[in-house]
Design a protein around this nucleic acid. Structure first.
Lengths: 207, 207
DNA sequence: ACGAAACTTGCCTAAAAGGCAAAGTTGCAC
DNA sequence: GTGCAACTTTGCCTTTTAGGCAAGTTTCGT
């Protein structure tokens, strides 16, 4: 999956170094107090090189998010073809989601980090960029779904709708999670959101 | 709905003038060949005033989209409370959607305009901003849905999921429509997308 | 009609953005 | 291994964006 020669590997490493540097600095100091120059310096490359990789701060920051979303699509492709669609989707998401959000999803993220992330995702430009990342990944996701269901990624609405539902489930879950005062468990929320999308969202009966 | 005194009205007018100017110029010339200064000039205000209204080009352009999305949420609130949720949603969307996309949805948009719009929405920064506009409107939408269904906009996932589904339906439909070679009718697509979200997205049976 | 509040504008500085070409690396064929 | 082609990094440079601040105008409420 990654013996592409030195050149490719270095490039990926630089890209990741830059985007992690961006995230770290912004979570620490707030987006307004980080210059692109700082990010480049932190990652050990020139400002001009930063611009070869990313058009702006937001894109650099959202790159981690994008990569994760693409991995979910990739994972979906790797799942056995016999597996029912939604089973595969839930598995793919839960598998690859342990969000690069914090370190690797291992240790419980400390409060300072969470606060920083909250501030970060509240930033308008960032939100847009993360949503865009979702949209990019949804194209891959839709293609994977089309393959798996024998639908047509170009002409049919279905695979696009499912892909969009997955993206929406992830987005809504993260938002809900970040808004909650008491720390919620992420996985059950995610599973719940995906299940509701797959099963439909009929109006809840009058109590 | 709009006798808010001169000040408010002028402000709204300026905002709209600016964002239409932005859209027109960008559709004509492409986003790279339009300076913020040009937009301000076209709308008859100073560059500095532009910046009082919008942080950047993308935001100005997406403002039309945002306003439309907010109107849909507003319309949902106005619908009779007895109407079933999804009936009301479909009606609200179809009612307010005749996309400011072209003139007002009346005349069939001419080819040059459609091409321009295609280029415009292909622009990465623009896509992000439009998605962000959706997200902003979805908050309102979720609140309206929560009211209507007796759920809690803060604690429950349901209203957020439905709002996200509406946003996704609109986005997917527009993308699908813009990608199609032959001109498709928008309304049936929209209705179809919404219906699928409400009813669920089970894997299509093997043919 | 008058003062408070809000809006517009110009001025100014810092930062972002991106074209271009020189210098440095890596990959590949021989 | 050598050498050339392709790609990457970097510095330099110019234009554009972004936004703080304060002076001048317009609108609002009483």
């Amino acid at each position: 999956m990654s013996t592409d020669g030195l050149r490719e590997r270095k490039k990926r490493e630089t890209r990741i170094a830059l985007s992690w540097a961006a995230v770290r600095l912004v979570v620490e100091r707030g987006v307004a107090n980080v210059k692109v120059e700082d990010i480049a310096a932190e990652a050990g490359v020139s400002l001009r090189t930063f611009r070869n990789y990313f058009a702006n701060k937001a894109e650099a920051i959202a790159a981690r998010h994008l990569d994760r979303a693409l991995e979910i699509a990739e994972e979906l492709r790797l799942r056995p073809a016999e597996e029912p669609l939604w089973t595969a989707i839930v598995a793919a998401v839960e598998d690859r989601f342990p969000l690069g959000l914090a370190n690797g999803g291992e240790e419980p993220p400390d409060q300072q980090w969470v606060d920083g992330v909250r501030l970060m995702v509240a930033e308008p430009s960032l939100r847009g960029e993360m949503l865009r990342a979702n949209a990019v990944a949804e194209v891959e996701m839709a293609a994977a779904i089309a393959e798996r269901t024998g639908t047509d990624a170009t002409r049919d609405l279905y695979p696009k709708l499912v892909a969009a539902a997955v993206g929406a489930a992830v987005t809504v879950t993260m938002a809900h999670w970040l808004e909650a005062d008491s720390p919620l468990a992420m996985k059950p929320l995610l599973r719940d959101a995906l299940t509701q999308f797959s099963a439909g969202l009929p109006e809840p009966g009058p109590r």
